[in-house]
Nucleic acid binder design. Structure first.
Lengths: 83, 83, 83, 83
DNA sequence: CTGCCATTTTACCGGC
DNA sequence: GCCGGTAAAATGGCAG
């Protein structure tokens, strides 16, 4: 046999373990939403809030990227716009 | 009424914490695939394997069966559906 | 045979035809970028511009959705913020 | 230098036009799947079929072989790798 | 050839 | 309980 079965086995096991961890987190998140809902909160709105707070962060990075690109674009133009 | 902004705050925080956990797991999973790849394994195939092991035997079989039926209907090799 | 092979055949063919169309468009898009690049333009920047112009439209809808959700949220609060 | 904003404009417009074409195709494809589903076909399986038909026979076989090898390495049923 | 980005597919969640 | 839409994951394609 040419592929090292042992190593493969170990990788697969590590992955499956991590996936279990992940599944637990997902499950817990669902539980919190459910609990909140049980106390009168609207899950949809909560999701929107969570999403928004994520975006506020990651969107900044995105904007930065865009700005960098446009800086580059401004260096590029050499343009004859009014031709 | 006792539904309070404070409670909402707490729920949001719990969720965000759990999402961070989840993100960590996801990141770790990616790392393991990357490491495996670095040692000559094929990540795509590994993903297929992990998925297979998740499926119960009957589910996997059922899906296969369906695909075979459709293939047969289209005259794509394999088996005799109309026997 | 229990699934109507003919209908299936037809659906598959229609899909494959449409996919071909789509592939042609994709290919043409690539060609335009390549041509532009050949004339000194930076494809990356062009992609950013195209993306931006798309976002400006579809992001408006997204924002609307968010606003609606928050309107609903404001209707919901009944809040005791200062408890 | 002749690289002009006007040319850029034209390229962008051509791209946007082609992207619209592409979007139409994508939309039509979705519609066909929806119609098929409405007539009792399983869209997921149909997608699998379309994908299969794209793959050359040899590619499909190769992938299958790889999966079997990995499965064998993990002691997951099927075949004898080390023969 | 590797890493990144876009697209596509899958799974989840909320509504009917 | 199912369906539709929405978000996450995975695959594939492109540039460097």
């Amino acid at each position: 046999m040419t592929i090292s079965a042992e190593n493969l086995q170990l990788y697969i096991e590590r992955i499956e373990c991590l996936e279990e961890e992940k599944a637990t987190s997902v499950s817990n998140i669902r539980d919190v939403y459910a609990e909140a809902k049980g106390n009168g909160f609207d899950a949809k709105i909560m999701r929107a809030i969570v999403k928004l707070r994520k975006l506020t962060t990651s969107e900044a990075a995105e904007q930065e990227t865009m700005i960098d690109i446009y800086k580059a674009a401004l260096g590029m133009v050499t343009s004859e716009v009014n031709s």
